[in-house]
Design a protein around this nucleic acid. Structure first.
Lengths: 191, 191, 191, 191
DNA sequence: AATGAATGAGTTTTCATTCAT
DNA sequence: GATGAATGAAAACTCATTCAT
């Protein structure tokens, strides 16, 4: 009785495998079979736990967004100074965890998924809004509200652009360089 | 004989239809049939003119990159002042032509295609390099080489990020606002 | 030990659930899972009790045939008059129990199952023969053997036809009207 | 130019193959592959011409209903006498064409399909109504309207019941016997 | 030059069934 | 006794691609 359910483990394994598979395949045209095989299961099991393929992909997306959210929250904990909070957000957003090639591939894939899947679009918008408001709030401690919002918008777009270029590999700024670019952008804008 | 071949027209029509179809479908999972039907031809004709599907997609990509290149070149023609050249590049890169929803969808799709198709990757890298060197060269007229390069990298990433966010629609900066954001970024970095 | 086994209850519950599920689904393409869930058990239990899916379906069929047989026998008990016995058979065959939508759906489904499953075919033939001989025997008390047999054959087919039409719902004769039609048929044939 | 299209041929071939396949398989759980193979084509072609599997099945149904309708109309042509018209309808409905085993299997299958597919249900209802009104109209020439309607309803159900029993094969009345049973029914009811 | 016809290969999805616990 | 876990097998359906005409 109370046999410990393996569902959470399986879901985690499958999500991890999906990220790898998306990276290996280079997009969302991974097959459920590829994902499952990579996780060591049969394709049928993926459907058993996630329903349709898109549900699995959405679960992956939620995982990534959750990871980023948790990392950001952890970095912000206890930090009061506005400028330091900005740096913490950048450190989380552009940190090595986000810059892992597989993670970047997955992000890019989800940008495309968002084009046709409303739920994916909603999730991505939540991410945008959260990043923006996090940045704007922190910046508002060291600059007027309006400027803070504008700088935040620029910084957010810059971060996404750096993801994109890094996702293409080869000669794109790495995690550290990326953070420095955004820091420089913000420093310059703050005057 | 010497009947003017209709091939170029057909190719252009198919490429235009492909862009629209990618936008309508929200990604590269358009079918050759959808593209051909939209252009008013049979799917077989697409193969006749382009070979495989990926070849058609690469042709679309080349078209888009060529358009952007020509527009940039036109904007730069006769402009000598460094700062003005920067503005001209931005105007071309972020102008209304590039911000048309269908164009953005296609760009995004090609970012994903580049993940798995070496030729697509190469084309995209060429674009990066060209944008970067255009910007860096122009900036080098008003700032030291090293700074120019760094600012150019940031501006390039910023442009791509703005594409991305606009592609997701909804509350993202429009063409004009986007240009202003990048101008502000550069102005701030130039001090 | 000697714990009263719950097996008979479980089997009955599963059979009832199967009838409902067949009705809800509109045919034999119910899944074992649907049936089991409806009964409140796991799909595995259905196999535990019945073996393969077809065995479960055959059990359902036997149940229905048994119900009808018992009802007919009860109606005939103590009735001696030939004409009255005919009416008793009709009352049982066309009574409300048989005209319940779910029952009709199940019957229809079994007609189809009989097309490919020999055991189902055998069961259905037993039903035919029993209905026919019941009717013919009763009619033989008020008409010559040969005529009795012919009238019985017609009445039997008529009953099945009424099932069929009622199964399709909508403007088909109800239980009472159905009985009256068959009574009229027999009355007319008897002169 | 004006290359003669083979579509009608293919559709006919596929429909014929479907009827055979339904008979061979004993129900609607034929696969598209079985049908196509029997017709000598690939499964993909069936989808090409019919869309989904259910559309193919509906086409089969329409074919059968159309055949019956045409045969009935042909039998009625030029016949004025009410009683003779009734016989013509019966001859068409219970004639050898309808009593071919494969045809019967298909009919039965469609009864089940009608349980879950609204279009199939509608088609079957059309058949009912047409048979009923044909019979009732003919009978109305030799009996009062009300009686005609009632007798027609009985005869219609009887026909369907005979289909059903014949579909199960073995010891069921054949085409000729079936017609005689219905004729006897009607003769008796007409007094 | 252009296309209807045709298909092979592949993908998602479903499900009966098995089995260890 | 009962079930969650797992899967093999199969089905519908899609699509890029080929080819004869």
């Amino acid at each position: 009785m109370a046999r410990p359910t393996v569902e959470p483990q399986r879901r985690r394994a499958m999500i991890g495998a999906a990220i790898e598979a998306i990276h290996a395949q280079g997009g969302l045209d991974v097959t459920v079979g590829q994902i499952a095989r990579r996780a060591g299961f049969s394709p049928a099991l993926a459907h058993h736990y996630f329903g349709a393929k898109d549900d699995l992909l959405l679960a992956v997306m939620r995982q990534l967004l959750g990871d980023l959210g948790r990392e950001t929250a952890a970095g912000l904990r206890g930090v009061r100074d506005g400028r330091a909070r900005v740096s913490a957000i950048l450190a989380a957003s552009l940190g090595p965890a986000q810059f892992r090639p597989a993670t970047l591939s997955a992000w890019l894939a989800f940008y495309e998924m968002a084009q046709r899947n409303p739920q994916a679009r909603r999730l991505l918008r939540v991410y945008f809004r959260r990043l923006n408001s996090n940045l704007a709030d922190a910046l508002a401690r060291v600059a007027p509200r309006a400027a803070a919002r504008e700088i935040a918008a620029g910084a957010g777009a810059l971060i996404d652009g750096l993801y994109l270029r890094h996702g293409l590999g080869h000669a794109a700024p790495d995690s550290g360089a990326a953070a420095r670019i955004v820091e420089a952008h913000i420093a310059a804008r703050l005057g």
